[in-house]
Design a protein around this nucleic acid. Structure first.
Lengths: 106, 106
DNA sequence: ACAACATACAACCATTTAGTTGTATGTTGT
DNA sequence: ACAACATACAACTAAATGGTTGTATGTTGT
């Protein structure tokens, strides 16, 4: 994952409305308007939150008739988790072996 | 973890300079000026990044003479990781048992 | 065909952010 | 005591963010 992608996913997660949307779409597909109905803000605002999540890769959309069905991408969530695992590995003192890990194609 | 705290940690992680600082201070203690020496920006800018990380709880400081030594808080990193684990659990369809999990004191 | 619906996007506004420079406050070593 | 160092913070700027309203485009069901 590039630094730009990391910026995008963490930024996407740094808003409670977006985290809530992500929870919902990880549990199952929802149209944008179904999502929008759940929040005390305009449809356009929710649509922009969905777009931010989509650009970050945490959410994907597919067309179904006149609706766009959004679902969460659990693989993207896992790749964020592995960045945190890497940080924990650094804490564990493994930094000295980073080069070796890179050589082994982690 | 409150939603405000979640906002703060994800926002803190959404900047590559701060992620890099966090990596360094997880590997070991560093003074603010030692950290600042590693980046192509002013001391004040780095000091503000350290302050953001500190406010988020990902970093703590202790005084040592005229220096402030910063170190990363691995427990805070782990609590971010567990928020992601919870999202993954939602994806796995466990949402229906959230109440039960809460009763069991997860 | 067409009215209603679902989505996208532009333009705008207020607030926050990431950077800058400059200044103030402590701490240390001679 | 004091010069140099380490940090903190204020004030400023440019850009990004999260919200708004309004408009355009495409899809559906009668």
């Amino acid at each position: 994952m590039t630094e730009e992608q990391a910026d995008a996913v963490f930024r996407a997660l740094a808003d409670r409305t977006r985290r809530d949307i992500l929870r919902r779409v990880l549990a199952g597909e929802h149209s944008v308007s179904a999502l929008a109905a759940g929040y005390p803000m305009s449809f356009a605002a929710v649509q922009k939150h969905v777009a931010v999540l989509e650009r970050s890769g945490l959410l994907t959309k597919r067309r179904h008739g006149r609706e766009q069905l959004a679902s969460g991408d659990v693989e993207a969530v896992r790749s964020v988790a592995s960045m945190l695992d890497e940080l924990e590995a650094v804490w564990l003192g493994r930094i000295a072996r980073i080069d070796a890990l890179l050589d082994k194609e982690l």
